[in-house]
């Protein structure tokens, strides 16, 4: 079985946080305790949406030491492939769902002398768990959180009232943005930088830090890379001898799974490298969307990451 182990849960609570973001809380059906996790971990939520099974990663934002429930916060994406819409429109309290064991691709480096966190919009979620973890160990941290407006900044009020000196808010609606250059300049030696938010924000923050001489080893980021919809295409799975059609709103990985072929994955967001698949034959254009393959590998046309990447052309044969 691919992915990490599964946990059967019931939706115990749904909280609307603002026009776009909703929190879902889960309890285990078997009454056992959830595993503890480390701040920054995500879980894969399985959604039975009509005929298709969606599996979307969401950062766990509950207290990592709370073994009685897990919580995620989901931002509605009206242009996405429907996973977040399904969560918002179809999921009700006491529904049965399946979560994966937590996997962490965005963990704190506990050797850091200080943790400097930069969040954009829904990118706040992994930091919610990391802050709880750091508070327990009296860690030194600081959060700079930018959101569109006060009414669209999930958890800002809680964070500010609990940590008035450590949380700094920036609202587009007030024309306030993070003065990153000044913020980075003067941070004590041993500071690690964590960024979670839209791609533009990550590129900007990583670029600034590198220019100022911050080593790569202290720069950590997580981008919420959802598979993008695209033109339908066909793929031949040579090991399982199956011809599969990938629909407009499903990912290549989802289509492979729909056909009952067990394919490896962990993050489903182009970051972990687990789903790497060998291309046997290809006639057409690859649409590589992942952060995993090197540019050289992408050009070689020999590998694809089916969780986020697509294909446009006549023939694609994969070793799967």
């Amino acid at each position: 079985m691919s992915g990490s182990e599964k946990i059967n849960v019931k939706v115990s609570k749904i909280v609307l946080l603002n026009d776009l973001v909703t929190r879902f809380e889960f309890k285990r059906i078997d009454g056992e305790l959830f595993p503890t996790f480390s701040g920054g971990a995500h879980t894969i939520v399985e959604m039975k949406d009509g005929g298709i099974t969606r599996r979307n990663p969401y950062s766990l934002m509950s207290d990592p030491m709370d073994q009685h429930s897990y919580a995620i916060s989901v931002r509605r994406d009206d242009e996405g492939r429907g996973g977040s819409l399904f969560m918002h429109n179809n999921v009700k309290v006491s529904d049965d769902m399946v979560l994966s064991y937590p996997v962490n691709l965005f963990s704190l480096d506990l050797r850091a002398k200080k943790h400097l966190m930069i969040a954009g919009g829904i990118g706040i979620t992994p930091f919610m768990a990391q802050i709880k973890q750091l508070d327990r160990s009296h860690g030194n941290w600081e959060l700079h959180y930018s959101a569109r407006s006060p009414s669209l900044s999930a958890y800002a009020d809680d964070l500010v009232s609990m940590h008035p000196n450590d949380v700094h808010m920036y609202y587009d609606s007030e024309n306030k943005s993070i003065d990153l250059e000044n913020l980075l300049d003067g941070q004590p030696l041993g500071t690690h930088l964590y960024i979670c938010g839209p791609k533009g924000m990550i590129d900007w923050a990583v670029g600034q830090a590198v220019n100022l001489g911050w080593p790569n080893e202290v720069i950590h980021y997580e981008e919420f890379l959802a598979p993008k919809p695209g033109k339908p295409f066909q793929v031949m799975l040579s090991a399982s001898n199956k011809l599969v059609s990938v629909g407009e709103t499903e990912s290549l990985l989802e289509a492979i799974e729909r056909e009952g072929v067990d394919a490896p994955y962990l993050c489903r967001g182009g970051a972990c490298g687990q789903c790497e698949t060998v291309v046997i034959e290809a006639e057409g254009e690859f649409i590589h969307m992942d952060h995993w393959l090197e540019d050289k590998e992408k050009l070689s046309r020999k590998k694809i990451m089916p969780c986020v990447s697509r294909f446009d052309g006549k023939t694609l044969v994969l070793d799967r």
Binding site: L184, D185, G186, Q187, P188, L189, L212, G213, W214
Partner: peptide
């Protein structure tokens, strides 16, 4: 020197 240094030190 290290303790009083800032990030960006090489």
């Amino acid at each position: 020197t290290l303790v009083s240094s800032h990030m960006g030190l090489q």
